[in-house]
Structures are given as C-alpha cells and as structure tokens.
Simulated scan of single mutants.
Amino acid sequence: METARLKQLGLEVRDEGKGLEATLVLAEPLDNPTGHWKVERVIFRVEGERLVPSGPAEVVGLRPITLGAVKEAREVEAEVVAAFNEHLFHVQRRSAELVALGLDARVAPESLVLSTQVSEQGLTLTLVADRQGHFQVASAVRDGQPLPLPQARTFELSEFRERGALVGYLAALFGEQGRAVAAQAAGEGLIGFSEVVRAFGEGALVPPRSGLELLVLLEVEGKPYRFAAARVAGRTFRGLLAGAQGKVWAERFELDDFPGVVPLVADLLKVPTGAVKLIGAPQEAG
C-alpha cells in the first residue's frame, strides 16, 4: 500500500531492508552555486508520513515533505525546490552576518553547509548552520584538547551585533569566562561596574548603538554559575545562565522587565533567593 502510494507520486521506490527509500528525478535540476554542477535526483527516507531528504549532500537536512500535502511528482519537486532556495537564502544572509562580525564564512562545495571558526584565548569553536540558518557549536577545542559539547541547542546569529558579544556568549557555554576571571585576578583588565559608576557617575549614558556585555559570577548551593548578558539593540539584551554542565537558560529580555540576576537565577533553579550568592569582581591592589 505504502509502496503503491509512493509510486503514484512518481517516485522510484526500493526497500533494502532498512526501510523504504524513494527517489525523485527532477524535471528541472537544482544548481549547486559553489560546485557549479547540477542535482538531478533527490533521495528520500520514508519515515511514516514524511519524505526526509537523505541524498545527495546538497539536500540532506532540508525540511521533510508531508505525504498528505502532495499528490504528484511536480508537487514533491516544488517542495524540494522551495526548501533548497530557502537554504541558499539563509547561506547568503548568514554569510554576510559572519563577515560583519569579522568571521570567515565557509561554504562546503558538496554539501553547501555554512560554517565558521571562532578562536579566543586558547578556545577554538567550530560553528555550523543548519538548513534553516540556525547555528550551533559542532566542535570545541581548548589548548589542543577536545571539549564535551553542551546539549545541542541552536542560536540566532543576528542577535549578536558585535563579535565580542558572540564570543562572550559562546565562552560562557564552556566556562571560559570563569577562567578569565581567575586569570585576571591580578588586575589584567577586568572592571567592576561599581568602578565604572564611581569614575563616571550614575548620570553616564550608554549610547544607543554601542555594545555592552555583562558578566556575573554566582554560587548556588556550592555550585558555580555564570550569568552573561549582551546588548542586542536599544534596551533589548540576550541573556545566558550556564553552570558546570553547560547552558541552563538563554533568552532575550527587555531591560525594563528584567527582575534582577539573583531573582532570575533563584526562579530558574527553584531555590530561595538567599541560596544565590554573588561572587564579587576582584579588587585592585592597594
């Protein structure tokens, strides 16, 4: 029944013992803009009511096609073309955003997968975008040693207007900001906000387009946590709470609605506010 239904859609079907595989011969081949060749056939894995693109490399990861939404081969092809063009749009858009952040945009010729590498103070991260344009950390190395990755979670690149904000967010995932605090304990550049207020006064303003990053170190029931925030635009920030096991929480928030670091952490970790201890920035000697 399932095989007959797929054949009615104009697909070539075969079963090699690992489930059904369906192939669509495209009436108008897809252009690979980096490899300068064409994709003439698309292979799908059949998963229940979905056709999941599985080959060639250019289409792996494109959004699945729901069988109930298509009635003939041309509709299947239209879905593939739309998803492929959407991916190319994301590659172009995200490549421009990476370049604006001072990062290299690398597109693999065969798979058309977009990636980049971020290196900062011995930490090297490889970021890879999925077909919908969302990034995640694909590999992490510190001083030549591979690091375990946080749970697979994607992030929106456009939320980071400056390279420093992106680096701060990524570093917090791997505990690098805690290491930076220890390294800077001798006064190598870490600044407490109390020092800023003391120097410039409470009337000082942050210009609308300038970047702003914040780091708060905490301890909750003997366990270390890091809260980092980076300004997205205006009064909108991107916040991150991370612990020894990686990211706990990450969301945008409006400055006017932010409850404060301690109440937020207490609510997220389901502990009393008294259990959340702030670890002050190191003070200058003398």
Score class of each variant (00 low, 15 high):
H87Y: 10
L264F: 05
E219V: 02
R41Q: 03
L268S: 06
V76M: 04
S210Y: 07
V262C: 04
R131P: 01
G234R: 11
T23Y: 00
G243V: 14
P64H: 00
A228V: 14
G239L: 06
V141P: 12
L24M: 00
A138C: 08
S54Y: 01
R106A: 03
E110D: 14
G203I: 07
S194D: 14
D31T: 03
F193C: 12
A27W: 00
L278R: 13
A171Y: 01
I191F: 00
A229I: 02
E219S: 13
V261I: 15
L98D: 00
L67K: 09
E16G: 06
R161N: 12
E284N: 14
L190M: 09
H134L: 11
T23R: 15
Y169M: 05
F174R: 10
G246K: 07
T116I: 05
G260Y: 13
Q8S: 05
P33F: 01
L217F: 02
V107W: 07
G243E: 09
D256M: 10
Q177C: 13
L20Q: 11
A22C: 05
G175F: 02
V128M: 06
E21K: 06
A230K: 01
P146Y: 03
E110H: 10
V167H: 09
G164S: 12
L6P: 05
A100M: 08
P146H: 09
P64L: 06
A204W: 04
H90R: 14
L147S: 10
A204I: 03
P64Y: 03
Q245I: 00
G260K: 10
D104E: 15
T126A: 14
V265G: 05
T236K: 14
L218W: 07
V265W: 02
V46S: 05
A185F: 02
L6D: 10
Y169G: 05
D256E: 15
S54F: 04
G68H: 12
S95R: 10
Q136A: 13
L125P: 09
D130K: 07
L241E: 03
D143L: 09
L214Q: 02
L166I: 12
D256R: 15
E75H: 00
E176M: 03
A108H: 12
A183M: 08
F200H: 13
V196I: 15
L51M: 02
L170G: 11
Q132M: 09
